[in-house]
Design a binder for these strands. Sequence first.
DNA 1: CGGCGTATTGACGCACCTCAAGGTAAGTGG
DNA 2: CCACTTACCTTGAGGTGCGTCAATACGCCG
Lengths: 251, 251
Amino acid sequence: MIIALDTLRALPLFSDLSQDEGAILVRNSRIVTSKRGQYLFMHGDKITHFYVICRGALQIFRETPGGREVTNDILIAGDSVNADEVVARQAEHAMNARAVEDCSVLEIPTAWMREHLKDFDHIAEKLLAGIADRLHSAQVDVEQLTTMSAAQMVACYLQKLCVLYNFDPHGFELPYTKALIASRLHMEKETFSRTLQTLRDQGIMVTGAHVSIKDMRKADNLACAECSMAEECGAHRALHEKLEKNVGHGA
Amino acid sequence: MIIALDTLRALPLFSDLSQDEGAILVRNSRIVTSKRGQYLFMHGDKITHFYVICRGALQIFRETPGGREVTNDILIAGDSVNADEVVARQAEHAMNARAVEDCSVLEIPTAWMREHLKDFDHIAEKLLAGIADRLHSAQVDVEQLTTMSAAQMVACYLQKLCVLYNFDPHGFELPYTKALIASRLHMEKETFSRTLQTLRDQGIMVTGAHVSIKDMRKADNLACAECSMAEECGAHRALHEKLEKNVGHGA
DNA sequence: CGGCGTATTGACGCACCTCAAGGTAAGTGG
DNA sequence: CCACTTACCTTGAGGTGCGTCAATACGCCG
């Protein structure tokens, strides 16, 4: 598939590409599509390309010997998929990447990336900041796993969704199946389901895929009570900023 | 404190520094020492320097609102401390760094690092590979937390220690207090203590700080049973390679 | 209608946390 | 050299949050 320069520029990673740089990149990359359920790559595959999601969502996960799926992350349009593998010079993918929904993915040969990263100074910086960011997220994940209850993690995640997708906390639809979200939160779907019920008392109503958070303050207290990374994880703060802006507009 | 060029070169990060580069770096860095228990920096402090440990060990941790310490990692000589914060251009430290034992730490102003990273091509690469590596470790942590029992995590950690410190699995001393190790494994010290008892049946004997792993195969099966990252986490494989080499020498 | 993917609900057990009380070892001062 | 302190570790009893297994319900499409 031929790539338009605009398609590239729409990706945060490449947003400030010059005309010339863009032309070079267009020549060295292409767009692939994956149907829902299809694998972009699997654990153990040779690493041949660097990927950036243009449309859709990818589940990044591993499979334990016991057959259990451990979801590492759910990546969406604009996210780079395996930047870490490119800079770490790994030979094989450590994870599986499966399309949660139909996807378009930009693919760039890793060899080319490694060769030319230094020519695109600003790109390299963004890529690295992205990796550092993901490291940070992983650390947050660990902390939350060890200190927060299922209810707190769910509340926290729902708020994060609002920020990520620019949802209105007072009413929005879950963007993935509950099973996937549960997996992303490292809990069983039964636990997730039960947790949603208990959250009703806290003003977080979930019926089907529809979520509405009645009392932001209550939800916040719940989510933040044990979350030392409230500031950096940023979900709550970002959400509040957004809400305050809305109030401002409304008044 | 004045730094010898050799001191720099002893650090993996700077091992292939040229004479000139070394001289430049010496002029722009210094060595600080921290006594056991002292903080190198705390959560919320302004980020002023990039640090590399020359001697000793640092506990990297956060404190939850509830007062619980969550240990992110224990870094030792040769490790860079906050490479991610340098490339992510954060303003404040997200973690606490406290000396587990008396430490010597190389400190380089972040401004200088950011300015000159691109002049030291190979250094930048190592730094980034280090970050990618740590991302990987964090992901392993998450996976192990969600899939492995306390016994498995402890067994796995003991093996990792052998690789990291080049210990002989058949007999070595724990390099940190049990409380610290428990914290690193995200479990309570009581749980850790009890787990060590149960591991005796599996041929992993721990009395005081002394560890001896009688039956490597048994320990392995235990640790790897649910560890999908056996290859990459590398503890077991690296350990086996080491043991096989020893056997080879012995014969 | 039947079948499939997805979600809910119930009953049950266990691994780990929590609180509380020793116990051991090393260091300090008389 | 012994009493005392302090830091570190172990052991016990009890509670619980979440995983597990199994059955049922819901929504969607052919």
